[in-house]
């Protein structure tokens, strides 16, 4: 599976990674090699095999809807680069 430059750019945009031209070329070669290796799994017949998302026999772990103490807001915001009125401040999303 050889990736094109356009595919690499598409993936980078999906993941919101700003890459240099040099990085794009590097990842194109490396990801192609890794995917070529990964194609080995296509040899296996998995028609009747269910997927494993987790090894645990768990589904939808629920808890009681009880109010418990949360972390202090100021502690949580202390690591944020930009804060206003107890909120994270971001640039306009629409516009």
């Amino acid at each position: 599976m050889k990736l094109s430059l356009e595919q690499v750019e598409h993936i980078a945009e999906l993941a919101k990674l700003g890459l240099t031209d040099e990085e794009k070329e590097g990842y194109r070669a490396q990801l192609s090699a890794i995917l070529e290796y990964a194609d080995m799994i296509q040899q296996l017949d998995t028609e009747a095999i269910p997927p494993t998302a987790t090894v645990l026999p768990l589904r939808n772990v629920m808890r009681d809807d009880e109010v418990t103490p949360s972390l202090p807001v100021e502690d949580v915001l202390a690591n944020a680069p930009d804060v206003e009125d107890n909120c994270f401040r971001v640039k306009a999303i629409l516009g």
Binding site: L3, Q7, V8, I11, A12, L14, A15, L17, Y27, L31, I34, L35, A38, I41, Q42, L44, T46, I49, P50, P51, T52, A53
Partner: peptide, 26 residues
């Protein structure tokens, strides 16, 4: 992140991510 995004992206999910989860079962 690139590799994972690709494996989960439209058109490749079944061939890569889902297939890998089935191999995980084996």
């Amino acid at each position: 992140i690139m590799l994972g995004t690709y494996a989960l992206s439209a058109g490749y999910y079944d061939a890569y991510y889902l297939k890998a989860q089935k191999v995980r079962t084996l």
